[in-house]
Amino acid sequence: MTTIHLTVNNQPHTLTVPPMKRLLDLLREDLSLTGTKEACGEGECGACAILLDTGSGPELVNSCLIPALQADNATLTTIEGLAPDAALHPIQQSFLQAGGAQCGICTPGMILATHHLLTQHPNPTEAQIREGLSGNLCRCTGYMRIFESIRQAATETAR
């Protein structure tokens, strides 16, 4: 067991966990943040994607592939932290309006991947959208409504 300090959604935490525990399990089991999902457990589907800042800015990562110890002193944002007050983040709003969420299980990861994409490319091209989401598998939508959600979110954020 090892003791780590990390800040999740602006809340500091000190936890004693097995150092090789997956960050995904730490979030879900130790912090009860179940918005981060497991669907493949091998970094293929993006359902467990979160934003992780280990000192060089927040980056999209798959939390199923990160040992807890490597998140020591890191700052994390999960889907629960995107809109800390009752309002929806503009990306959440656009996913809701444009049909970007169907069954919803890939949605937290999709929304965080979109957040990362729009940070890098505020006005993404179709190719940038397709690439930016290609690590997040969705079986319901065929991605078209998700692309539309992102275009709407980009427009909304630009205003």
Partner: peptide, 15 residues
């Protein structure tokens, strides 16, 4: 809007 959509985009839906 999808009935259960708000909870889904918030990640609040419990599977």
């Amino acid at each position: 809007l999808r009935k259960e959509g708000r909870a889904k985009v918030l990640g609040a839906t419990q599977y």
